[in-house]
């Protein structure tokens, strides 16, 4: 591991001041000299591998603002402070019963030890597990822009079929983000230039020609909170995660589904897909198929077809299209059958 400087700012303004002092304004946060660390479950790993190379770590765990560590639940929304740990959020009974898709997306991720360390703000920013990104001897456009993509014609079983580009096919592996994007969550961001609120759907960027730029955050911005609006769909919601083993594995395909039903008919569906796309992935076309329809296996299948209409398979990941469709069909039917 390379040597680095470690600092532990006392509050958000102090953290931002350090960030703007040491991080070049235009660098993507993942390439900046100064980078924030919270749980460290992702960044520390990548620093050891030489993938992340910050000169200076700004540890957010000492920030004094109490709201960063609070979960506030009202009739209208759930607001998560960004330093809330995954495990704490997953264990909250009101969330488990009131909005199961959130609790399940957290519960099914990582391991108990990791969930106790990882912050929610950091979780949504987790970087891909692409094998070629993780090992610095391979060319990788995300790690070293312009060097090429080793996965494109390599072993790409875990790679994305949606939202890919000619430069990058790395999967966004997070689970929690799928629940957030499905439920129209927003993120609160603080930076030296002020505070802003962003639709969660706008936080991540498609790889396009610049897969090294993963989010709309600047290097001197911090996510301070995530807010999820609640509605009639919240309690009839589910996260279905399909993977090679029953625990401690990323999704081969997953679906976050929330349904607002009128009897057998779908008033409104919210759907996101994990394990198959380069960014958190809202399946709007599938939602449109379901709207106003009786939800049975045939309509679920049509929605699943629509969700993967633009999917682009490669040598080893073609099965994800079929698996993704089955996963969505199963998730829709199981969510329909939930007691709301």
């Amino acid at each position: 591991m390379r040597p680095f400087t470690y600092e532990r700012p006392k509050n958000v303004p102090a953290a931002l001041a350090l960030a703007s002092k040491f991080a070049a304004k235009d660098d993507p946060p993942t390439e900046a000299d100064a980078q924030f660390i919270a749980g460290g479950t992702n960044l520390a790993d990548y620093m050891k591998l030489g993938v992340a190379r910050p000169e200076r770590l700004l540890d957010l765990n000492g920030l004094s603002e109490a709201s960063l560590r609070q979960i506030k639940i009202t009739d209208k929304s759930i607001r998560f402070g960004a330093l809330v740990r995954m495990g704490e959020a997953a264990d909250r009974e009101e969330i488990r019963s009131g909005c199961p898709v959130i609790a399940q997306s957290l519960q099914l991720a990582a391991s108990g030890q990791l969930r106790n360390m990882a912050s929610l703000g950091g979780n949504v920013l987790q970087r891909t597990r692409c094998e070629y990104f993780r090992e610095t001897s391979w060319p990788c456009n995300k790690r070293k822009p312009g060097s090429g993509c080793s996965a494109m014609n390599g072993f790409n079983r875990q790679h994305a079929v949606l939202g890919t580009s000619d430069a990058c096919i790395a999967t966004y592996h997070g689970d929690f983000a799928q629940a957030l994007i499905a439920l129209d969550a927003t993120v609160e961001i603080e930076g030296r230039r002020g505070r802003r609120t962003l639709a969660f759907a706008k936080l991540h960027q498609l790889p396009g020609k610049t897969p090294n730029i993963e989010t709309n955050l600047a290097a001197d911005e911090i996510i301070t909170a995530i807010e999820v609006p609640l509605g009639p769909w919240s309690s009839r919601s589910r996260y279905l995660k399909i993977r090679d083993r029953e625990s401690y594995a990323f999704a081969l395909a997953s679906a976050a589904v929330a349904l607002d039903m009128d009897g057998d008919t779908v008033r409104e569906a919210r759907i996101a897909l994990g394990g198959v796309a380069t960014v958190p992935w809202r399946a709007g076309a599938a939602e449109d198929v379901l709207k106003g329809k009786v939800l049975d296996e045939a309509t679920a299948n049509r929605a699943a077809e629509a969700a993967f209409a633009d999917a682009r398979p490669l040598a080893f990941n073609g099965f994800k299209i079929e698996l993704g469709k089955s996963t969505l069909t199963r998730a829709l039917l199981e969510t329909r059958d939930m007691k709301s």
Binding site: E131, S150, G154, F155, D244, R245, E246, S247, A249
Partner: peptide, 24 residues
Amino acid sequence: EIDQRHARYVNRDLQDYIVPVNAD
């Protein structure tokens, strides 16, 4: 898993080299 073009092992950690966990 082996990258066939380069004869290199690619899943060299316990995340990607899959063995059963307790839940299995």
